[in-house]
């Protein structure tokens, strides 16, 4: 019993995946020098959906808090950017992380209201909260009222600088969101989150402060949604309450997460890629496109309840973002050493 047990947290796929991801991010970061601005816009938009969906997955897929009102924080992030840039004359690019912090601060009191509700009531309650924000902001004329306003803070910044900075911010935001969610899930707090998803009673009786953990997750998800909103409207140059607080944000996030694979990081990435393709190929069909998305979600949930990635992952035991800890006995250590 001299040799100790060791704990492994990586898989072969995760080592390859990490290297591929690093190369991919580096390659993407060169886009502003050579890529078509149209591609960059598409990437920016999808990175906002990615950040938002990652956060929704953390909240609902891992934390079991099914919210359909996370667009509240997208809108707040967008409007925080507007106020910081247009009214307080903060550099609009610097205003993006500040808008995220402002959203986080607003989410603290909101969490106390939302957490009074559970299950289905929580889902609807969060949507109501988002509507309250939409209607309230529509009645504030200094931020454009119901018809919205433009992000004038970007005037005087050259088009190429603006496009490059927006792109890099989106890339940095998406990378940071993936890293943050992954880091959280692998941490001790992530362990508590996975535990309480399976049994809140048991988690609580094993010393996990369930309410505190859930609130932390809710606040992280709100900050992430705020970041997505700030980035989205930075690229969009224009914001209105109807666009900022639309329930479509939550609907698309649910589509992305459920079709990709709820409760996995890879699933969200797969879901966003699929959503991008469908959007590019079929969005001209308007309402029929949305009907198609809904039908696809229904078919996938019936045929692949764990989502497309969940199916692949189980079939091939593939995990690019492993969160588990594997206990490795000393015997195998010796076998590996020789």
């Amino acid at each position: 019993m001299t040799a100790a047990f060791t704990v492994s947290r990586a898989t072969r796929a995760s080592r390859i995946g990490g290297a591929v991801a690093a190369v991919l991010v580096l390659w993407l970061s060169t886009f502003p020098w050579w890529a078509d601005p149209g591609w960059m816009r598409e990437f920016e938009e999808m990175s906002c959906y990615l950040i938002f969906a990652l956060m929704w997955n953390l909240l609902a897929g891992y934390g079991g808090m099914v919210s359909i009102g996370q667009q509240a924080f997208v809108g707040l992030g967008g409007y925080a950017l507007l106020v910081l840039g247009n009214h307080l004359h903060v550099n609009p690019f610097l205003a993006v992380p500040l808008a995220m912090v402002a959203t986080l601060a607003l989410a603290v009191p909101v969490s106390f209201i939302a957490f009074r509700l559970q299950g289905g009531y929580f889902a609807i309650g969060t949507w109501v909260i988002a509507e309250v924000f939409r209607i309230s902001i529509a009645n504030i004329s200094t931020v454009g009222g119901g018809s919205g306003t433009s992000l004038t803070a970007l005037r005087g910044i050259s088009r190429s600088t603006r496009e490059a900075a927006t792109f890099w911010l989106c890339l940095a935001g998406a990378t940071a969101a993936v890293a943050a969610v992954y880091g959280f899930l692998r941490s001790r707090e992530g362990l508590a989150l996975l535990a309480l998803r399976d049994s809140e009673t048991a988690a609580e009786s094993q010393g996990v402060d369930v309410t505190r953990t859930k609130r932390a997750v809710y606040l992280i998800a709100a900050a992430g949604a705020g970041l997505a909103g700030a980035l989205y409207f930075l690229g969009n140059l224009r914001i209105s309450p109807d666009a900022a607080f639309t329930v479509n944000w939550s609907a698309f996030a649910i589509f992305i997460v459920v079709v990709g694979g709820v409760g996995t990081l890879e699933g969200t990435l797969v879901g966003v890629a699929l959503f991008y393709l469908l959007n590019k190929l079929f969005s001209d069909y308007g309402t029929w496109y949305l009907v198609g998305l809904g039908l696809l979600a229904v078919v996938v949930t019936l045929k692949f309840p764990a989502g497309l990635w969940g199916f692949v992952s189980r079939r091939f035991d593939l995990h690019f973002f492993p969160v588990h800890r594997r206990l490795i006995p000393p015997e195998r250590d010796r076998a590996c050493a020789t």
Partner: peptide, 13 residues
Amino acid sequence: PFGAMTVFENLIV
């Protein structure tokens, strides 16, 4: 049990 976690992870929690 925390069903989606390994036995070892259950104890770590």
